[in-house]
Design a protein around this nucleic acid. Sequence first.
DNA 1: CATGCAAATGTTACAATGTATCATTTATTA
DNA 2: TAATAAATGATACATTGTAACATTTGCATG
Lengths: 168, 168
Amino acid sequence: MGSCQHESELAGGVSQRIDTIINHAEQHCKTHGVRLTDKRKQLLSVLIGSEKALSAYELIDLCKAEFGKAIPAMSVYRMLQFLEDERLVHKLNLANKYVACAHISCDHAHSVSQFLICGECSKVDEISVPKQVFAELEKNVEEAGFHLITPQLEINCICNDCKKGNKH
Amino acid sequence: MGSCQHESELAGGVSQRIDTIINHAEQHCKTHGVRLTDKRKQLLSVLIGSEKALSAYELIDLCKAEFGKAIPAMSVYRMLQFLEDERLVHKLNLANKYVACAHISCDHAHSVSQFLICGECSKVDEISVPKQVFAELEKNVEEAGFHLITPQLEINCICNDCKKGNKH
DNA sequence: CATGCAAATGTTACAATGTATCATTTATTA
DNA sequence: TAATAAATGATACATTGTAACATTTGCATG
């Protein structure tokens, strides 16, 4: 697997960065024969613009603040499901929150993602641990008579800022 | 750290096994100056007797079935909190369910627990991966600017039985 | 034993999260 | 443009979890 640029490090301002990623998402959907509608795009752009993982209802509030109209909860859950199916968004079950995939603009597939979730401020980092470490873990799982279903690990952490006692 | 006998492998029948563990739990509470009341004991024994992780409301139903009286949700959540604080029970945030600690009868502390959670049937196994594997993982977490708070990893899996398509 | 205090549990009323069902709107295609 | 499928909206609920206050229980002490 080649290295890739983390999307938070893309050049340009914030909204330009979001546009770039959204463009990639649109391209992705086009080639998959599915539609990235305006509403879905709104949701995704809010997630991309957020440092933190967001709950469905936080998303509703933010969309309302940014776009003026409240999206019903039912619709938000459906759109999140769509975005998850298209691997544009990850659901963090540990926190019941959602984050944009950190690699939407990358072409290559990412094998294993670990999500570090700050329990204080919900900041999330999506990292990839070395294959070998993950392979070790998987070996132990298999020995216990279980099988990994998603190569996704969610880890409860505290981020540097919160550890230092900074407010947000 | 010494090796230890997994509690599901204790000799004797099921209810005897539960009694044995409960006795250890009582001893534990006595030395910690807290009370393992009858209700708390009921809850704990249901959890010990269950192969699967149980939600708070599943616990309410099972307690009602076994002991005749329904415990209010509020009380159940409080008792679960108590049992968690005493490290007799683990909360699995991935599944919003609870399991009895697999090592109540062991004297020594267990450093790092990984919970393998079957997404089909909620069966849970509490394993310990080698220290070195965990240390590797932790190193990656630190490099990302995060810190582990609980040495607890929850992993979405499917168990052998469910993979084979067995019904429960 | 009575009394008083603290811990534990119960009750009520909600808040928050998530979904089933049916209605409506929007896009696509013949 | 009409027919159809996909997406979204609206309503009503189910489930999960908690805040606030009331009651009961266990325990120490006079």
